Simulated assay, not measured.
Amino acid sequence: MSGSTSNESVIATLKPSILAGVGSLIVGLLLASIGTYYLVHVAVYLYGFLISLHIPGSSIILNRSCAIITVWVICLIIPICKIIGLATTKFDITPRRVYYYHGVLNRRVDQLEIARIRDLSTSEPLLLRLFGLGNLILLTADRTHPRQLIPGIRDVHGMRERVHDLSVAERQRTGYQEMENTTEATA
């Protein structure tokens, strides 16, 4: 358990599934495949054009393997970074706060007061739903995190109800009230 949650009991620890990044990985693979196909065909025509112009050294101008590797790296760098980011993310839910641990090289911890959660919703994209996963979305009165997404978690509906119950209990305990249509609150 981390030092920031040492005086609070952790009710749930949520680690996003890397399956939440599989959709972007599939798109990256498709783009890389299409890019490779067109790159090979354009390279053949360009190579033929350069030969027809009798440009000296045209046989070494095109290095297809380097071009193909470049296309694959460009198309897959963002999905791979997203998956690594998901693998290094964790949420700890306590009766009073939600702690959000994230970062690959530099670790950052953010916290959200559970009483400041205004609304909860879930989304279940097809790919996640196939694996029994979903996204929990916290809409809050917090200025730095007005919308907090917890991606790729199991039993998303059950977790939504648990967080809702914790939020209601904490609001009652502290007497927290929000002014309608404002970001101000009274405690």
Rank of each mutant, 00 (worst) to 15 (best):
A32C: 09
G28R: 02
S123L: 11
S52Q: 10
E113R: 12
L127S: 01
S123P: 05
D92C: 04
T144G: 13
D110H: 13
T88Q: 12
N135G: 05
T36Y: 07
I77A: 08
G134M: 04
T94M: 05
V44Q: 13
I60S: 15
T36E: 08
V71G: 04
D92V: 00
G28N: 07
D110M: 11
K90T: 05
Y99E: 05
T89P: 01
I83D: 03
H54K: 08
L50V: 00
Q111I: 04
V109W: 07
D119E: 12
R64C: 11
L105W: 15
R118E: 11
L30G: 07
D119H: 12
W72Q: 04
L120V: 04
A67I: 08
A87C: 00
C81V: 14
I34C: 13
I51P: 00
L25M: 09
I60W: 10
R96P: 01
T70N: 07
L112D: 03
L31D: 02
S58E: 09
T89C: 04
A32I: 10
A32G: 15
Y45W: 15
P56H: 13
L105H: 14
A141G: 12
T122N: 07
G57Q: 07
I117G: 03
L139T: 12
G103P: 06
E124Y: 07
G132T: 03
H54L: 03
T94D: 04
G48A: 13
G132F: 05
I80T: 13
I83M: 09
I77W: 11
L105C: 14
Q111T: 08
I114F: 04
R97C: 01
I74A: 11
P79T: 06
S52N: 12
L29I: 14
V109N: 08
L120S: 01
R116K: 14
S123A: 15
V27A: 12
L130K: 08
A87F: 03
L139R: 13
C75A: 15
G85Q: 05
Q111K: 14
G57S: 10
E124T: 13
N106R: 15
Y47R: 11
P125S: 11
R129G: 03
Y47G: 13
Y101N: 11
P56K: 14
V104C: 00
L136I: 03
K90E: 03
E113C: 11
G48C: 09
Y100T: 07
A141Y: 01
R118H: 09
K90I: 06
G35D: 13
S123I: 05
V44R: 09
G23P: 07
A141L: 02
V22D: 01
G23D: 10
T140R: 01
L29H: 07
G85D: 06
Y37I: 10
K90V: 06
I61F: 14
N106A: 14
I83R: 01
P95W: 03
L53Q: 13
L120Q: 00
D142W: 06
G23K: 10
Y45L: 15
I137K: 09
L46H: 02
Y47C: 00
V98C: 06
H102L: 13
D92N: 09
W72L: 05
R147M: 02
V42P: 00
T88C: 11
G134P: 02
H41N: 15
P146W: 10
V98H: 04
L50I: 00
I55Q: 11
W72G: 00
I137H: 10
A32V: 11
I26G: 08
L53W: 12
A32M: 11
I68H: 03
L86C: 06
